[in-house]
Amino acid sequence: MNIPFTATLEAEGIACERGGRRLFEDLSFALGPGEALLVQGPNGTGKTSLMRQIAGLLPLAAGTVRATGTDADTPAAELCHYVGHLNAVKTSLSVRENLTFWTGFLGGGNVDAALGTFGLTPIAGIDAGLLSAGQKRKLALSRLFACPRPIWLLDEPSVSLDVASVERLSEAIRDHTKAGGIAIVSTHVPLGADFTHTLDLAAQDPLEYGSAEVPAP
């Protein structure tokens, strides 16, 4: 990650509808290189849906999401890493094979360095099916380092991680934003990362129309 990232991400007036119910609407924010957004809100207010919308996995009910990277015609999804509740870990492949596949598919990256980030090197050879929940989560997060991408979408990344690993994750987010990357993180535990923006989805009353501009840093 020697080349600093220069991507920007802009969401304008986006709304989300799940099962006929509006979770939020008229949501706008703009993130430049090196900025991080903390998404907060009680369960069921649309944190995961927002992440999936930015990643292009859920349709937008209204509004637009624009990401600009090094290449003008790269779709937003290809600039993003999405680590959600599901780890996307294949249990019958070894830890190393899992990461090697992702670097081959997504176009990476240094597998050995990525394994080292969360201290997975000693268990690189064993089947991912034998890993604990926390280790699987670390393997999923290692994808962030194996294939450098400017925008990180982390949906409760600290679930089932131990204290030291949460600290390591916070440090990784800080390093990422320092290198010019963008991070959007939803979390219920405090992470030691410097968030330049905060978005509280609980403050979004879907019945009240109005702008939810994120305050500038």
């Binding site: 290809e78 509740h85 997504l106």
Partner: peptide, 10 residues
């Protein structure tokens, strides 16, 4: 297992 999510973002 969520792999399809990541496959669509490749």
């Amino acid at each position: 297992d969520g792999t399809l999510d990541v496959l669509t973002m490749g």
